[in-house]
Nucleic acid binder design. Structure first.
Lengths: 354, 354
DNA sequence: CTGAAAGCGCTTACAG
DNA sequence: CTGAAAGCGCTTACAG
């Protein structure tokens, strides 16, 4: 009932375990006749290598953890962000012949589980989708820090907040410049009273976009008008109501996400404001839905999938390959050659809402 | 630079490797003084057991795969189904001290990856969220069948479609009886022309709900009016338009999901039909949003989280525990004692839409 | 090009 | 209650 071992394959093929191993692992330099005999034995026996045994000696697992520091309700929401990240990361990692292990961690207990799993050596590396701020409410060690001390390579999709002692490599889009471009576009359109709906300020993406708004505004004589949302549609609708109360004469809004812009659009319609005639509106992300609103949404396109691909690249650079054994970390030079951060540009996409 | 081994812990505590192992694994019957010495050594060295070595000898991994046979775009959508399943399954499995490995598989290549992973012995068991039909378009082996031949215990959340040779244990809610109750409720309200918006017919949940509708209708002299959706909001709106064209005089609709009911509600409003005055509407699921529609939605409550918990129980029964070594499968008796299917009841929740 | 042998880091009968 | 020893299934220098 037990699964066949390499020993059995070798016996059947009439070779040594070493040779069988070479064939199974695709080493060149095995005589074709021998190679075929081994392959036949593998086939006939239905042999599958035991990953525990293999990983015990190679000190590699072939798996990478994709850790999303968000609760399931947010990960599985109508925000396409996570869907895109997971898909892009999986695709790139599969192309590199690595298995993705998706883990959600949104509580101190969850963080501890992830840390134990990683520290245990179940994975060769970690990709953190690190959107949220410094640690958990109860002051537990932030996941970023906890993972950094496991000695397993860690990279982040999105600039990590408060990385603390441990600066980890990351990829991100240029939130700051993107947001600034959005507001400048509104200024160029002759808008005078420009408000913004920000994301939650414990997320670096929200911080950077708010900074971009402020910078563009400070170049003019306009005062900033800010409402805070949480990147969801509903929060956008609510924030828009607050903005209309604060300044009934505003003539433009920059929403830090398309979903919030869509919510704001609904509020504006309910309030009898025409878009863009009375109020111009710019979003951020360029999600699919932005093309189908009425009017279609001017927005800042964010290359989420490209960032994900770059982040995977960042990690793969730091992983020992199957060919070369894990090298001792070399001081100085080598480390510096590995780029620590990759910031991809965004692009203004003008549609009918401005 | 290498991680400390059990050998190092034993040396530091002045005991044998065997004793150190016993302490680390929480075996009773180690003298308290010795126990504490080992624990101290573990602490000081920051020892973490090597899972590969452990699993090589125990033939257990402590991990369970949660395989979702859907593309990312559907898993990460605004349908709360997957969110609830993932959360409930994770919670139950963590309580049983098992790590969840979430895998999406929606292509022949994805299926092959999952099969290889499972066959390789990376996990002790598999929970399949098996919503879709028989295999893939290109006639590849259905995942259900492929997994069943790996000899790893497999259970399914939701009745698997076309399990083929391999009947695997599953948990589900009673879709058939639930749908029938929905339609009977409409009949009792005096409705005469009752249509249904079905889910995609390659999913067993959709099949069973349509069957429930048909059964309730066949008891009356009404003819059935069916439109097919895909469980999404948009498809519900579209299907509703089709139904209104087919029979402008219909006075009730049973939608096989709340999301589709919400889409239908929009169409009805656009068509100037009042709900429930002109058309009564019942959904299925009782998702959060069903309470916030206008009018609030009458629906069939489905205990998704409870089913998930039961399914985990089904799997745990089939897993060797840490205490007892894997027993040889005993013919007959034992197997029959393990319940093969668990069907939980649904409940009609009456709100203002009927 | 191939094989004998060591060793990866654990657990677990088996003695005592 | 504790230890010496075998063994889980692989890979990989090292010889030849």
């Amino acid at each position: 009932v037990r699964r066949p071992t390499l020993e059995a394959v070798a016996a059947r093929a009439g070779v040594s375990r070493a040779t069988a191993s070479r064939v199974v692992n695709g080493f060149t330099g095995v005589r074709p006749g021998v190679r075929d005999a081994v392959r036949r034995a593998v086939e006939e026996l239905g042999y599958v290598p035991n990953p525990a045994a293999r990983s015990l000696v190679t000190r590699r697992t072939g798996s990478v953890a994709l850790v999303v520091a968000e609760p399931p309700s947010r990960v599985f929401s109508d925000d396409p962000f996570f869907s895109v990240v997971v898909r892009a990361v999986s695709q790139e990692l599969e192309a590199a012949d690595r298995q993705v292990v998706l883990m959600l961690a949104s509580s101190p207990a969850g963080n501890a589980r992830v840390e134990r799993y990683v520290a245990g050596g179940h994975v060769d590396g970690v990709i953190l989708v690190s959107t949220h701020g410094a640690g958990t409410a109860d002051g537990a060690v932030p996941l970023t820090t906890a993972l950094a001390r496991t000695r397993v390579p860690v990279v982040s999709h999105g600039r990590p907040a408060a990385a603390g002692l441990a600066a980890i490599p990351y990829g991100d889009c240029d939130n700051h410049v993107g947001a600034r471009a959005a507001v400048r576009h509104l200024l160029e359109r002759g808008r005078r009273r420009i408000a913004t709906i920000s994301g939650p300020l414990d997320m670096t993406a929200a911080q950077d976009r708010l900074f971009g708004y402020r910078e563009a505004m400070s170049g003019s004589d306009r005062r900033s008008i800010v409402a805070i949302g949480d990147f969801t549609r509903e929060s956008g609708a609510t924030a828009m109501r607050r903005l209309l109360t604060d300044d009934p004469h505003l003539d433009a809004v920059f929403a830090a996400s398309d979903l919030m812009a869509i919510g704001a659009l609904r509020t504006l319609r309910e309030a009898g404001r025409r878009v863009p005639d009375d109020v111009a509106l710019v979003g951020f992300d360029d999600i699919e839905a932005a093309r189908y609103t009425d009017p279609p949404l001017t927005t800042i396109r964010q290359p989420v999938a490209d960032v994900a691909a770059e982040v995977v690249g960042l990690l793969l650079t730091r992983l020992p390959t199957a060919a070369e054994p894990p090298t001792e970390p070399q001081a100085g030079r080598t480390a510096e050659r590995l780029s620590e951060r990759l910031v991809l540009p965004t692009r203004l996409v003008v549609r009918a809402s401005t």
